[in-house]
Design a protein around this nucleic acid. Structure first.
Length: 700
DNA sequence: TCTCCATGTCATTCG
DNA sequence: GCCGAATGACATGGA
């Protein structure tokens, strides 16, 4: 398909359609029993197939049919292989899609291991089975190497009797003989490491070597539709990355009529609508081939769906961002990918041709909304794709690309490692093809929904990619560039690539929406952060408020006690001073209504009615918090039972500071400044000292 | 069937 | 006038 000449003039055309078309035709032939040269009997049920196809997918079949000449080969599989397990594998061999349910995945896996089906072990089973089943349950370990292969190609010390029979080259139509062979195979597998078997194997080393050579030769072959684990470094570009041709060019989107297989597979797994509804969450289709070009992204399990409905189109584009950023993904999963099946039977619609993945509308629209298993599967596969590259990206970035329907020049920034999908390119020479080359060699086709009705509403619409609904835009650069470049660089890019108005509109629209999408995400994140901050502030203020209220209550109590103490003190002083009513009124005049002195106007002090200050002090009515220490005692003159002062006797009350209003302080000052003779009080030597801070200190 | 939530997109405003 | 960012409003689909 390709030819090479000098490097300057060499061109390579690589069809992205061919492999899929061949596989599809083979499947159709199989269904019509055309050119089928093999009959596989499983549980008394016959399956017609092409030995070359099965040999390409299965080590077991490869070993069984390689040296077989002639037609009419009948291979009866042992009891370990069941119809439920083999039928999906056969479908997989012809469609690269494996449909399975939680119920039959174990059977499929066992059959796959037994038959040595490639591309299924780690990518499919190692993760899914533990996920499907309770982790507490012991899930069988999936062997990376098939039993058959491990025996035939790796364990050269053992050989089975069937190997001998395989080499005889005779048609073996005898079912009984086949069964014997199968039993031999089974016995070989079951008694791995068996000493006797090893000895027997040594005795038949030549036959084993023959088998080993067959396997090795097979591994070297690259013309299999499904890349092998062992030869993943040299897969057929066309098959694995159909949209990619050499030199980093991209072939036109792949028209692929795979709906039949998908529908058939879907109907196969779901015989009834009710059953379908029950198992949809667990039903996964695994697709091999082409998938590395449309990888899922780590941290973005939802990117499986990729395309929004608005962007669904027939020639679904390749996720160029991923390819660009990570290069051609080559991982242990060999391009396998899981896609949940539609949840409803009605969703089994004819698929959109042109894209290597047969996805229904719902599959593509399901971005961001998948079940847990689906997400985990996607994450698993995504990690598998990129784990070696340690690629990290945010979901936004994934969405950014996932929603942008644009075919891109692949491997513009491929992995530094050798990209097996670009075997013709030397490292460091993977350049972005020129615009002319791109447009000439391939179609960087981007199907963009031109209208609002971008969904595949009907089956007919889903199959058709009419020009009324879809406009195809070819771009010489990637969507990632469109979205990621700054303004100047973006303008520079546009200058470098003269675009049509349609292309410009598309590019600007993509850029605008991409920017806006990210902005919206930022905006929402800010909102959430703001809300969280406000909640924190609210809690903080509430706590502070409670604290202040408690302090306020304490101060109120202290205030009441202090006022009461002052009132008592004033009463005592007035009684001691024997103030006249006019004098009391004068005091009240300078006091506020809530001043204790105002009570004196209407209430004549009475020695008997109110306890003396001494008594109050003895009762320790003064709050300790407001009382002074011994350094600032409140010295109260002692009085006798009649109220007269006992000259020279004082009593220190542990309260010194009494908050007074200015008017009160003034009144007290005047009272204190009265000449002793004006006071009919023998204790003329007692006086009141009022300091400037309006606190009253009574001293003698 | 309704509600909630996440997300993308559009329209608008502002710098 | 263009562009980017921010944001409200709306639509959509899954849970």
């Amino acid at each position: 398909m390709s030819f090479e000449s000098s490097r300057t003039s060499m061109f390579t055309f690589q069809s992205s359609v061919h492999s899929s078309h061949v596989l599809q035709c083979l499947d159709e032939q199989r269904q019509k029993d055309i050119l089928c040269d093999l009959t596989v009997v499983v549980e008394n049920r016959s399956f017609r197939a092409h030995r070359s196809v099965l040999a390409s997918c299965s080590d077991y079949f490869h070993a069984r049919v390689t040296n077989h000449v002639g037609h009419g080969l009948v291979i009866s599989l042992p009891s370990e292989v069941t119809v439920a397990g083999f039928d999906p594998l056969l479908q997989f061999a012809y469609t690269a899609k494996l449909l399975f349910t939680k119920e039959n995945i174990l059977e499929i896996r066992n059959c796959a291991i037994f038959l040595g089906f490639r591309n299924l072990d780690k990518a499919c089973f190692e993760f899914l089975i533990p996920k499907f089943f309770d982790s507490s349950k012991s899930t069988p370990t999936v062997h990376r190497k098939s039993r058959w292969k491990s025996k035939c190609c790796m364990e050269k010390s053992s050989v089975s009797k069937s190997s001998i029979n395989l080499d005889d080259g005779e048609d073996n139509d005898n079912e009984e003989e086949e069964r014997k062979n199968n039993q031999s195979l089974d016995g070989l597998q079951k008694h791995k490491g068996d000493k006797a078997s090893c000895q027997e194997a040594k005795a038949q080393a030549d036959i084993l070597r023959s088998c080993s050579l067959v396997c090795q030769e097979k591994s070297k072959q690259t013309d299999y539709s499904i890349p092998c684990v062992d030869n993943c470094k040299t897969p057929i570009k066309e098959q694995i990355c159909p949209g990619l041709s050499s030199k980093g060019s991209v072939s036109p989107a792949t028209p692929r009529a795979s709906s039949d297989s998908t529908d058939q597979a879907g109907s196969h797994c779901c015989s009834s609508k009710s059953n379908l509804a029950q198992v949809t969450c667990e039903k996964v289709v695994m697709v091999s081939s082409c998938l590395p070009c449309v990888p899922s992204l780590p941290g973005n399990p939802n990117s499986l769906g990729f395309m929004e409905s608005q962007h669904l189109a027939c020639n679904q584009p390749v996720e160029a961002e991923d390819v660009q950023r990570k290069g051609c993904p080559v991982g242990p999963f060999e391009g396998c990918r899981f896609m949940p099946l539609p949840r409803l039977e009605s969703d089994y619609q004819p698929l959109c041709y042109g894209f290597p993945y047969s996805l229904t509308k719902r599959d593509w629209e399901g971005e961001g909304r998948r079940s847990t298993v689906e997400r985990e599967v996607a994450e698993h596969l995504a990690r598998g794709f990129w784990q070696d590259l340690s690629f990290q990206t945010e979901r936004s970035a994934a969405n950014k690309c996932a929603n942008i329907p644009c075919l891109l020049p692949l491997h513009q920034d491929s992995s530094k490692e050798g990209c097996p999908f670009l075997p013709e390119l030397e490292p460091g020479k993977r350049e972005v093809p020129s615009r002319e080359a791109l447009l000439e060699k391939s179609s960087y086709s981007s199907c963009v929904q031109s209208g609002e009705d971008s969904e595949f509403d009907t089956e007919g619409e889903s199959e058709s990619c009419t020009s009324e609904r879809v406009c195809e835009v070819q771009l010489p650069f990637s969507v990632e560039q469109i979205a990621a470049l700054n303004r100047n660089d973006f303008q520079q890019l546009l200058k470098q690539h003269p675009l049509t108005q349609e292309q410009l509109d598309f590019v600007h629209d993509v850029r605008r929406r991409s920017k806006n999408r990210i902005a919206a995400q930022r905006c929402r994140k800010r909102k959430l952060d703001c809300i969280h901050n406000l909640e924190y502030e609210i809690d903080k203020l509430r706590t502070e408020k409670e604290k202040l209220l408690q302090e306020q209550n304490l101060l109120n109590k202290l205030k009441l006690k202090t006022r009461q103490s002052l009132s008592d003190l004033c009463q005592w002083m007035c009684s001691e001073a024997k103030l006249q009513p006019d004098q009391l009124q004068m005091l009240a005049k300078y006091s506020s209504p809530d001043c204790p002195l105002s009570a004196l106007v209407t209430q004549r002090p009475s020695h008997s009615s109110s306890p003396s200050l001494h008594d109050r002090a003895q009762e320790n009515i003064y709050p300790s918090s407001a009382c002074s220490t011994a350094d600032t005692p409140l010295t109260v003159p002692m009085t006798d039972s009649r109220g007269y002062h006992l000259t020279g006797e004082t009593h220190k009350v542990p309260c010194a500071t009494l908050p007074l209003r200015p008017s009160e302080a003034t009144a007290l000052r005047r009272l204190a400044d009265r000449p002793p003779k004006e006071r009919d009080n023998p204790s003329a030597n007692s006086h009141v000292v009022v300091d400037a801070s309006s606190t009253c200190t009574i001293d003698q």
